[in-house]
Design a protein around this nucleic acid. Sequence first.
DNA 1: ATAATAGTGTCTATGAGACATTATGGG
DNA 2: CCCATAATGTCTCATAGACACTATTAT
Lengths: 244, 244
Amino acid sequence: MTEAHWTPPAVMLAVDLVILTLRDSRLHVLLVERGVEPYKGSWALPGGFLEHAEEDLATAAHRELAEEAAMDVETLHLEHLNVYGTPGRDPRGRVVSVAYLAIAPGLPEPTAGTDAAGARWQRTDQVLCGELELAFDHQKIVADGVERARAKLERSSLATAFCGPTFTITDLQRVYEAVWGIPLDPRNFYRKVQKSSGFIIAADTDRKVTTGRPARLFKAGPRKDLYPPMVRPTEPFDMKGPEG
Amino acid sequence: MTEAHWTPPAVMLAVDLVILTLRDSRLHVLLVERGVEPYKGSWALPGGFLEHAEEDLATAAHRELAEEAAMDVETLHLEHLNVYGTPGRDPRGRVVSVAYLAIAPGLPEPTAGTDAAGARWQRTDQVLCGELELAFDHQKIVADGVERARAKLERSSLATAFCGPTFTITDLQRVYEAVWGIPLDPRNFYRKVQKSSGFIIAADTDRKVTTGRPARLFKAGPRKDLYPPMVRPTEPFDMKGPEG
DNA sequence: ATAATAGTGTCTATGAGACATTATGGG
DNA sequence: CCCATAATGTCTCATAGACACTATTAT
């Protein structure tokens, strides 16, 4: 706003969604197959432009999710992830995309919506290593989303959101292992989680039926922020590595 | 993108900057006095609209910083903070603002640039408690920026960026105390920081002149991510408080 | 000497990690 | 009985927090 009667340039605003879930003890991300140019036929994150100038960003995110993947999860909690606005990232012109992150328990198999040729769950590790190439800069967006999820497991009780309404402590451990990508000791995990006051509380329902001793069932506790945090192991610093 | 020949609506894109620094061992944020409507005369974060449709967001942020606060800190590292796009947050129409966060050592007293009537450093605690009301939703943006800074001190070596090129361990402690808003034990802090490999390294320059024993000088080490993190004390969870 | 700040040592409680052991179900 | 998984206990080491003490300058 340099001049009095100058009007700011308009840009196209889009939303992109990183929907993470757990399937077969592996972290998956929701992808759609693009039905229109550009990148027609490529896999991409669900998302799209604002419908009208007054549409709320979160509203647009939910709408795109329903349109492209036929998911009407009104209850899905979307969290702002980042903004991707490098000029040239979209061949259609100046598009600034606001990325949202959602994390949820075993979601249903998606079906392609009106705007997409297909929709499916994809293992995040296959996306991160480049085994499957995504449209636009969506690989970077997925990487940011996964890293955010990893960090959130440490200080928040988010992991319980990956599980169903009730779960065993082993179920919870699987979440941490899948998202962090490392194995954890069951005994120590058990102690740590139970000692974290307010994290999980016993559910007085039946136990989980399985081979072996039946496990107790728990549900998410009232605590949202964990203290002390569940610190994830990191390699120590050796004062000479290229990074850290 | 529902129809084939439908074009997305255009929105006005703005950037806002949360520039944090330390003055007199207190956290301060850079504010400008608005010279134009709306909110003319109110204090607000520096920022403004994109100049043209192809301008990069980070470029716009640096430009606004120079225009409004006469700061030509090209080297200032701006980090994406959040997006504020609630319809109605700006009376001029649909404005989506991308907030950036920067953290730097004792910056100079700002001078009002071409677009602002004034510029000054303001204590963040006075902004957060509402003692000074800001334009738009800028109080919320400041709160988000401060919380982000607090969290970053734990896992990154960011605190050294608040200091000059060399600093004493006490200087570093003042940073943590000011940002976290709590006192720390000097002896334990000393041990902890020195044991964190790669965090700080001794500078073989002179010692700091002061009354009392002269202090050793250090400079930032190569390590960017701290492990184990410098966990900030938090009140324990009592299973009944309204929050946690 | 005294004041003032820098830097070190020591003690204790707690948590992390490794791993043995017991408990409880189904074949 | 054996097998599989759940749940608990024990040991050791590292760290956090509290705080006494020594060191080095200026006045």
